[in-house]
Design a binder for these strands. Structure first.
Lengths: 358, 358
DNA sequence: TTGTAGGCGTTATCAG
DNA sequence: CTGATAACGCCTACAA
């Protein structure tokens, strides 16, 4: 079997507790003893068994991030920022992925027990209908980039998100103000009841407010079986729309990836963007700033969301009280894909746009 | 304290071992007893403590993936494929991220002990000079998308990668064959000794083979302090090059992200691609197929690499013998960004390219 | 089929 | 400052 603390103790002629003290930087230990032990540890390549440690420990100064959707293109950034913030608090942390079929709350429940977590952050996931389960999590947690339902008997939880409906509304309003009246939307699958639906709602509300009738053929839903907000799916949706020949002067994709797929499809069909058709996305992926044409989009405040998530978590850990959820404002970045478009446009579309903020 | 197996036992009026048996689907247990127990477990929301389990267990049917660089854009795909493959073997698995400063091998060593892993896969990372440490990993492991140095006293390890130098060579050769003589390269930081250097070597060799003298000003290195292969860094590098006014007819970026940054910079400078300048990348990110113009690149066999990694791992787990490392061929995808370019070009550049394979 | 007891590798407690 | 020893929660002989 592998090396244990006992072996080290024996080798150094000390008791196991002394070794443990050396390993954990306890103050009450002779300097030389400590060094002798650490040297032996180094030499033999001894590694303490974390399972045993966690089993015994009550306190861990550890938090975890539970990530539901690896693919989500801005989770990488969020994780990096969270990592920094958590380290600043002198906590250790780790990231746990949960698969498509796994339940994120179950994973959390296990982890809290296993690792003696002080708190955790959910990155993505879907929590409607999981109230009861969530209530079982005994440590504070924050749901990041997703809505959190009300949880009976649970105080120390919070959420950070943006107002998907409202931001979506702003985007469509932006198009309306330019005078667009035929605005197609590349939306989520029909039965979606997550952010996809919210963004669609925003679209509908904006049109209503601007007295533009809804055209069913301009609302394109993803297929149930290909429901990812991917470039490929955006591409396909756009192609179908083009094939049908319905007129439209603007396309709003509920995700940047879909917008890019759409742009590709438009390009291949010979439709010039933005001159002949405006295109807008949602999310604020950095890709969109580099695309040609650069893509108008709703930029999610990624860094801030990450920071606020961590902040809320530690607030709860320290105060043992809940903190209210936060809805952060996003930023509409107008880029070339909608520039100078629409009946209300005044001048020609600028050809180059180094001046457009990336 | 939280619920334990004892509480459940007491509640059901049985012994702890019976509960354990129910929990672990042991065959020798009365059906009704089992159901009674499971019902109680469900009711109380009991969750076994994994630390205790792992401590006791010797064997776990678990493998782990250790990911070094969250940002790497094709790791997401690789992870998904690996996940599928590992599940097919009826193993459980999890993904562990290690931070920039953390050492991946140390993380592995800990994990093996803690979770009683049967094997693990490193995704990314850097292993030169870590031979001794790697030798301490007592279970089989595979290094994916990175080189593995020779490890004394360690049989059951392997690697999966592509030949970065050779593939890079092919890409540059491709440009040479088109008649390009002034080929700029956007390369890694000067002191890079990883894939960045290999790709640069391939560039040099290709030029040598085609009797094209090296122009120092055409070799643009990333700055040490901004060494990521990012769009932003590619953009900056390209801008500098353009500013200097050196002539070139093609740009080869050692990563797709940098290529896209470069394309953006060229666009903003009014240089038409591919008409006035060819651009090529490396990696095969799906994004390149949707960019306008679509980007010629070296497509890494992502799926295959993932599958082969898992395959090799299980081969080693089962046979307890090492398997030789594999170097997989990549595919050069010619797309619009180099189409019909160079002195040897025959016709005009096609305007649309729905026919170009995405 | 079920219960009891011992031990997995640590850490915490408490004497020394 | 140091060393025994009892947990931590679970699994697994072994006995019943």
């Amino acid at each position: 079997m592998a090396l244990t603390i006992k072996d080290i103790a024996k080798k150094c002629g000390v008791g196991v507790s002394t070794v443990s003290r050396a390993l954990n930087n306890h103050p009450d230990i002779n300097k030389e003893t400590r060094e002798k032990i650490l040297k032996a540890v180094e030499e033999d390549g001894f590694i303490p068994n974390n399972s045993a440690r966690n089993l015994k420990r009550t306190d861990s100064k550890t938090v975890a991030i539970i990530v539901k959707d690896i693919d989500n293109p801005f989770f990488a950034t969020m994780m990096r920022v969270m990592e920094e913030e958590i380290h600043q608090e002198h906590y250790t942390f780790f990231i746990q992925h949960v698969g498509d079929k796994q339940n994120e709350v179950d994973a959390a429940l296990e982890l809290v027990k296993e690792k003696r977590l002080r708190g955790l952050i959910f990155l993505g996931g879907y929590f409607q209908g999981q109230e009861e389960r969530l209530g079982r999590i005994k440590v504070p947690f924050v749901v990041s980039t997703a809505e959190l339902p009300d949880i009976p008997d649970k105080e120390t939880c919070s959420f950070i998100t943006i107002d998907n409906e409202q931001e979506s509304f702003y985007m469509v309003e932006h198009l309306c103000k330019k005078g667009h009246k035929k605005i197609a939307i590349l939306a989520a699958a029909k039965d979606d009841c997550n952010i996809g639906r919210m963004r669609l709602e925003g679209y509908k509300r904006a049109l209503a407010e601007y007295k533009i009738p809804l055209h069913k053929t301009l609302i394109r839903h993803l297929d149930k079986n290909h429901a990812e907000y991917s470039m490929e799916n955006g591409y396909q949706l756009m192609k179908e729309l083009l094939k049908e020949g319905t007129t439209f002067t603007a396309v709003y994709a509920i995700s940047d990836l879909m917008a890019i797929g759409a742009l590709r499809a438009l390009h291949e069909a010979g439709r010039k963007v933005p001159e002949e058709c405006a295109v807008a996305g949602f999310d604020g992926l950095s890709y969109t700033a580099y695309y040609i044409p650069s893509v108008t989009t709703v930029v999610q405040p990624v860094e801030e969301m990450a920071k606020e998530s961590v902040k809320s978590l530690f607030q709860m850990i320290e105060s043992k009280k809940g903190v209210p959820g936060k809805i952060l404002p996003a930023r509409l970045a107008e880029r070339q894909s909608t520039l100078g478009t629409g009946p209300n446009a005044s001048g020609p579309v600028p050809v180059y746009n180094s001046e457009v903020k990336r």
